[in-house]
Design a binder for these strands. Structure first.
Length: 287
DNA sequence: CTGCAGGCCGGCG
DNA sequence: CGCCGGCCTGCA
């Protein structure tokens, strides 16, 4: 671990609030100076913006430029994506104007799996609290600028943790799911490295075998982790609401099947359905 | 005090 | 298959 700094030019496709509040991540916190500090797999990172630049500093075990480039998806042209989607209809145009600085992060696959299992039937403050306690109790401690932080625990670090101990940090009924999934991964029943090489359909089937991973959680993992499948359209209550309001116009609030929503999304947004979902979700939830 | 939050699981028809 | 009840916990 060593302290590193990096400054890059900012453009209209990068806004900290949009990135960290659009619902894809749980471990970034706002500081008093409007910067954000997060723990990512490699260490601690602080990000601050002004009109012209983005300032990164952190303690990491790899080159900061390489990490930032990968994590913030900096090699992708979001201007082009937004232009394509904006042309589809006025709803997309509105939601993109609102969340114009969103970027889909490349988050560690293991951490994303566990985090979204925890997210099931749960609320964000509690999800963040559970993940923080999990890291504090079982993750590796690192110090950055006189503060202590804890890396997300590895599968190995959770190997001897019992169901009761998981329950003890507030997981509720998700305790057994975390336990089972951890051991399925430790036993190589699901090979996380192999998932990256698979086509989307096969990767999704594999994820669905994990305990606590259903359709919605699997889709979040496919979109928000290093798997990075942009054509995947996770459907949660908010997306259901916004799709119902804008496209299905179902006045009696009858529950529309996931299959139908997926089909509408694919017909409208095609290969960019995942990122379209993010703009719609963020806009709907904040307005 | 109920209701409910970024669903999943298991049982049933 | 699709549908439905139940579920830890904490906060409004």
């Amino acid at each position: 671990m060593e302290n590193q700094k990096l400054v890059i030019q900012k453009n209209q496709d990068f806004e900290l609030k949009d990135i960290f509040d659009c619902g894809q991540c749980f471990r970034w916190n706002k500081e008093n100076d409007e910067s954000y500090t997060g723990v990512i797999k490699n260490g601690v990172l602080n990000v601050k913006c002004d009109d012209k630049n983005i300032y990164f500093r952190g303690t990491l075990n790899e080159d900061i430029q390489k990490i930032v480039q990968e994590y913030f998806d900096l090699n992708r042209d979001y201007t082009k994506i937004k232009n394509q989607l904006s042309k589809i209809d006025e709803y997309m145009e509105t939601s993109i104007t609102y969340g114009s600085g969103i970027r889909i992060l490349n988050q560690d696959l293991w951490e994303t799996i566990i985090s979204f299992i925890i997210s099931a039937n749960n609320n964000i403050p509690r999800i963040k609290g559970i993940i923080e306690r999990l890291s504090q109790k079982y993750g590796t401690k690192i110090t950055f600028e006189n503060n202590d932080y804890y890396l997300f625990p590895t599968p190995e670090q959770l190997e001897t943790v019992t169901v009761a101990e998981f329950r003890g940090i507030g997981l509720g009924f998700r305790d057994i799911r975390l336990f089972e999934t951890t051991h399925m991964i430790l036993n190589n029943e699901i090979d996380l490295n192999e998932l990256h090489k698979m086509d989307t359909k096969s990767a999704r089937e594999q994820l669905l075998k994990l305990s606590g991973v259903g359709p919605k959680v699997a889709d979040c993992i496919l979109l928000f982790s290093t798997l990075k499948r942009f054509d995947i359209f996770p459907i949660d209550v908010w997306v259901r609401r916004v799709m119902n309001d804008l496209y299905i116009k179902n006045p009696d609030e009858k529950r529309v099947s996931q299959k139908l929503i997926n089909q509408i999304a694919f017909d409208k947004f095609g290969e960019l359905a995942g990122i379209a979902q993010q703009y719609l979700f963020y806009w709907k939830r904040e307005n």
